[in-house]
Design a protein around this nucleic acid. Structure first.
Lengths: 176, 176
DNA sequence: GGATGGTTACTCGGATAGGAGGTGTCCGAGTTCTAAGGG
DNA sequence: CCCTTAGAACTCGGACACCTCCTATCCGAGTAACCATCC
């Protein structure tokens, strides 16, 4: 029942990336500084999100991460699965078949009822996670949080984001 | 997201205890043998269930465990919480407050929106677990499983259960 | 024959080692920006 | 003054230790049954 601690970091980073403009990217080092996390360790989770197709990575200087699709098409389920893995939390070890004088496998045509019940509950969990869209979280943050906090988040995004494919060369100014 | 492996053992044992008659008890050693588990390790989880008020323990010879209340008033939620602990799977570390130039605590009057979203999903999980009653699992097992398996389970219960407060002294025969 | 005391064996309960997976860190491959040099 | 080219710095990516928590085990406290003894 315990989730990895990296899930929280991954969601916060995804929300921060949702606040960036267009296809601009944010480097992992800036995200790590903003949230007071270890840069190396945060990269581990961002790579997982990238491998899952939630984020896109741009290498080289002026590179970083950005959302691979709009925030309204990213759910908390996507992020949790990317970090935790797709396997369900409850894994049936088929202990019903163990013990002395085990019956042949043909005696168990149906899946374990306990496993089925646990998976039903977990399906409800996954469905609820699928309803939580990243865009809703960002919107609720913007209108609900303290103005100072919102200002701080926007300043962070404005200060660290790096627009891609610069047509005009006035980009250098924006780097602090 | 990963649950302890002992949850499966705990549920199976609770279901087996639900098949016992009246206030009869089953020793942990018999349950461990039936499911091919380590007796010492199974005891750990049964003790957790006992501490949570789901099971009752009877010490001494002819002792063992039994359900503390009817099976229709025991849910999978009760068992999971007893084994896993009451804390939620997602624990907010408040990383939103970390980083350089942290704002004072007064800037965060509302709980973290990400934490709230995760807790909403987890509440759905818990509600679904609460709907899964132990009695339903047992009933579904009796009518749905292979007759050989049901027979094996009933024989196990009949062979190992120990009635409490024996009025007549014909108990000794039933021990294998 | 019945009651009684001691012994015994069985049970649960908590405290104690071992191992897998998450946590944290490091170094290497790749790419782009920069700047110097030449035309 | 513009183009080319080599260097360098910054980025992500994967491989490597450390540590916490789950897994597994042992021994001790307590209780009821059993049996021999006594009345």
């Amino acid at each position: 029942m315990k989730l990895n601690e990296g899930v929280e970091a991954a969601i916060h980073c995804a929300a921060a990336l949702a606040g960036a403009d267009g296809d601009a990217t944010l480097p992992a080092s800036a995200l790590a500084t903003q949230f007071g996390l270890s840069p190396s360790y945060l990269l581990k989770h961002l790579q997982a999100l990238s491998a899952a197709g939630i984020l896109e990575s741009v290498p080289g200087p002026a590179g970083g991460y950005r959302l691979a699709r709009p925030a309204d098409r990213i759910t908390l389920f996507d992020i949790v699965v990317a970090v935790e893995g797709p396997q369900p939390g409850f894994r049936c070890m088929e202990i019903r078949r163990r013990g002395p004088a085990p019956l042949p496998a043909s005696a168990y045509p149906k899946p374990c009822g306990i496993n089925a019940a646990m998976l039903r509950a977990e399906a409800a969990y996954r469905a609820a996670l699928r309803r939580e869209k990243l865009s809703d979280i960002v919107d609720e943050f913007v209108v609900g949080a303290d103005p100072r906090v919102v200002e701080r988040a926007c300043a962070f995004a404005a200060r660290n984001q790096r627009p891609q494919k610069p047509s005009n060369n006035q980009r250098g100014k924006e780097r602090r």
